[in-house]
């Protein structure tokens, strides 16, 4: 029921994606475990998250920045990711409905 060219196309996209996922993990195990590389690897998760957040917050304008700030503050205060996420989304929804 699945066409051969469709299967081939999906398989090609899947192979590229899988190679990227597996490649990162396998390459990382060959990196040195101390010194500057270690400091870089330890800072990497936070740096990736900051890089995911900042541009999309900026694109959402003042409401986006306000929502990100509220989410961050609530995470610190409540340690509840769900509450913080819901509050941030509420700010964005209200701004989109009633803002310009």
């Amino acid at each position: 029921m699945i066409d051969r060219t469709v299967l081939g196309t999906i398989a090609a996209a899947a192979a590229v994606t899988y190679a990227l996922r597996a490649g990162g993990l396998l390459l990382a195990s060959r990196l040195p475990r101390r010194g500057p590389v270690r400091r870089a690897m330890e800072a990497l998760p936070g740096a990736i998250l900051a890089s995911l957040v900042a541009p999309s917050a900026l694109k959402s304008g003042p409401a986006g920045l306000a929502a990100v700030t509220l989410t961050a503050w609530l995470t610190l205060r409540t340690r509840n990711v769900f509450v913080a996420m819901a509050a941030g989304m509420a700010v964005v929804v209200v701004a989109r409905r009633f803002g310009g």
């Binding site: 900042a54 929502a67 989410t71």
Partner: peptide, 29 residues
Amino acid sequence: FAFTAVFTALAVSLWRGSRRDGLPWLAAV
């Protein structure tokens, strides 16, 4: 925005203080 919000909340959890993360995060942003 759910994705941005979740990533924000988790970034806060990963923050190791301004001495270790201040400059790296600034550069990343």
